[in-house]
Design a protein around this nucleic acid. Structure first.
Length: 252
DNA sequence: CCAGACGTTGTT
DNA sequence: GTCTGG
DNA sequence: CCAGACGTTGTT
DNA sequence: GTCTGG
């Protein structure tokens, strides 16, 4: 998953003492990396930063977090590791989009892993439904704030390559998701696959397969000749210069 | 998520 | 195959 | 009662 | 901390 927050989104946030450009962009976010997050604090939306991979408060050490990167929305309220967070500590996790790997059978054990980039069709950043937790590090008596992305079944855009996708919240849903007083029935209704026309995908280079690579070039569409897949599956990418400018200014 | 590593005591 | 590190 | 898990994705 | 399995 790639992350970086866009100006268009930040306008709607009240920023705490953290400056927007204190959160460095990442084009290849790995588990345990810091990610920007929005929580409700004093009734307002506040931009902060969490470590990706939820560490429950009862964990003996932080190592469990590297694998608690997602929480299934279908079961999140009944899983001990997540139940308290989804009821009391919901957050928004903004990003330009995410990578998803398509497994292609090439006769080897692992198979070929072909990465796609998925983003919104309307040019806005994606805002995932997230949950967070605060874990006390006994070694130095500090707090480690961590988060997970809720997942749901894939929509028609994703299902050819993967059966799951993150829960993408629309602007009118943010407030309910963040409201700790919200009715849990209303909250759970938000946990649905994104509408098919809200997202698009295009192939990117397998350079993204290594987290050592992390630069804006990772977001560049693979040339159609290199896509190695039927054209019918490939989103046509608008290379209009104005679009490029828009993407540039959206990053911080 | 992917890439890369994966192993030590005592030799039954 | 599974775990760890990034 | 205590011990052990507490998670997802994908299972090439 | 709390739940499940034994």
């Amino acid at each position: 998953m790639a992350t970086t927050t866009a100006e268009g989104l930040v306008k709607f946030f009240v920023i705490d003492d953290r400056q927007v450009d204190d959160v460095p962009p990442s084009y290849n976010v790995a588990p345990t990396d810091p990610v920007p997050a929005v929580v409700r604090y004093d009734g307002q939306m506040v931009l902060t930063e969490f470590r990706w991979g939820l560490v429950p408060f009862w964990a003996k050490d932080r190592s469990i977090g590297a694998r608690m990167i997602n929480a299934r929305s279908e079961t999140v309220t009944v899983k001990k590791a997540f139940a308290e967070s989804v009821e009391q500590r919901r957050c928004l996790l903004p990003a330009d989009g995410f990578y998803e790997w398509e497994k292609v059978d090439d006769g080897t054990k692992r198979g070929r892993r072909l990465p796609w980039f998925v983003r919104r069709t309307d040019g806005n950043p994606m805002v995932y439904a997230g949950i967070w937790s605060s874990w006390r590090d006994r070694e130095n008596d500090t707090r480690l704030l961590t988060c997970s992305v809720l997942t749901t079944s894939a929509n028609e855009v994703l299902s050819p390559i993967h059966d799951r996708m993150p829960v993408v919240l629309e602007r009118e849903q943010w407030e309910t998701w963040l409201d700790p007083q919200a009715d849990m029935g209303d909250v759970r209704e938000l946990l649905a696959p994104a509408p098919d026309d809200a997202v698009e995908r295009y192939r990117v280079s397998t350079r993204v397969n290594s987290v050592a690579n992390n630069s804006p070039e990772l977001l560049e569409p693979l040339a159609e000749d290199d896509q190695d897949l039927p054209a019918s599956l490939v989103t046509t990418v608008d290379t209009d210069p104005a679009e490029d400018d828009a993407e540039q200014t959206s990053l911080f």
